[in-house]
Write a protein that binds this DNA or RNA. Structure first.
Length: 278
DNA sequence: ATGACTAAGCGTCTTAGA
């Protein structure tokens, strides 16, 4: 069972490249971020023709997450308990909830497609939203794992955090900017403290997952490692291979992010009576 | 080539990305 995460930066613009990759890389499940569309705008036909079912969660032209799978999707969840909102408060003082989290149980594995808020600037309200969003996600994962202690869980997506100095091309360039600040790194570390493992880095995979479109960042290999697959111990022990698909940044019309892939040692399609895990 | 940003929306600029 091969699964991947990819910030596609508009699925309507990228549909041909994404479906081509799924088939070429033999991917069973893809968690997408930044689909930049509402569910009714998603290009389902292209995925269906390739044999993939899609669940999409989007509210407007920003954000948006989806999961494509050629294995049966048993349950799905939009957002998570305690997830904060952002923007203009409504009459009751509630902030709009953005489309940044989508969960699915597939072959008994709990998979999440996550698009962590960017943060924008260290003194911007979006930065505090980012930290609060991560705090709430961590609390929610504790609750799921408490309820399902044996289920493999993977948090997959664009975390918008570079945990280590080697995860950015120039640490000086990022001084005073988001993605490398101590609170953001502490928030990321919190998941590791809870027992999640960066299952890709753990297997010796190096390199960036994102290169800005501007200033020849990709040809100069001036990138960032901000897309991750964090698995609990039950997930980690299933992983037999991992990769960052750097070549997907090449050619015409690439996303600014590339796919991150893991292969799991799971015999698919054998168990028709898996327990519900949400 | 991996080459000097890209995407969406009521849109010919603005917002967002990171």
């Amino acid at each position: 069972m091969r699964i991947a995460t990819w910030n596609v930066n508009s699925i309507r613009t990228r549909k041909a490249r994404v479906v081509d990759f799924l088939l070429r890389a033999d991917i069973d499940v893809l968690a997408m971020q930044e689909i930049k569309c509402r569910p009714e705008q998603f290009p389902y036909d292209e995925f269906d023709a390739a044999g993939y079912e899609v669940i999409a969660h989007g509210t407007n032209q920003w954000n948006g997450v989806a999961i494509a799978s050629r294995l049966p999707i048993d349950e799905t969840v939009e957002g998570f308990d305690g997830m904060p909102g952002f923007g203009e408060a409504d009459a009751e003082g509630l902030l709009p909830l953005e489309a940044r989290a989508l969960g699915a149980s597939i072959e008994g594995v709990q998979l999440w497609s996550l698009y962590v808020p960017n943060g924008r600037e260290l003194d911007h309200p979006h930065y505090h939203y980012k930290l609060e969003w991560l705090r709430a996600l961590r609390a929610a994962t504790d609750a799921w794992r408490g309820a399902n202690p044996d289920a493999p869980v993977a948090l997959m997506g664009d975390f918008n955090i570079a945990p280590l100095d080697i995860d950015v091309w120039d640490r000086e360039f990022f001084e005073g900017r988001t993605h490398v600040s101590e609170p953001e790194r502490a928030a990321f570390q919190g998941f590791l403290d809870d027992g999640f493992v960066d299952v890709v880095r753990e297997r010796g995979v190096e390199g960036y997952t994102y290169w800005d479109y501007q200033q020849l960042r990709f040809p100069r290999n001036e990138g960032m490692r901000i897309d991750f697959i964090l698995g609990n111990a039950e997930f980690d022990e299933l992983v037999v291979d991992a990769s960052i698909e750097r070549d997907e940044r090449k050619g015409d019309g690439p996303s600014d992010h590339v796919p991150v892939v893991v292969e799991l040692d799971i015999e698919t399609g054998l168990d028709d009576d898996r327990p519900m895990i949400f």
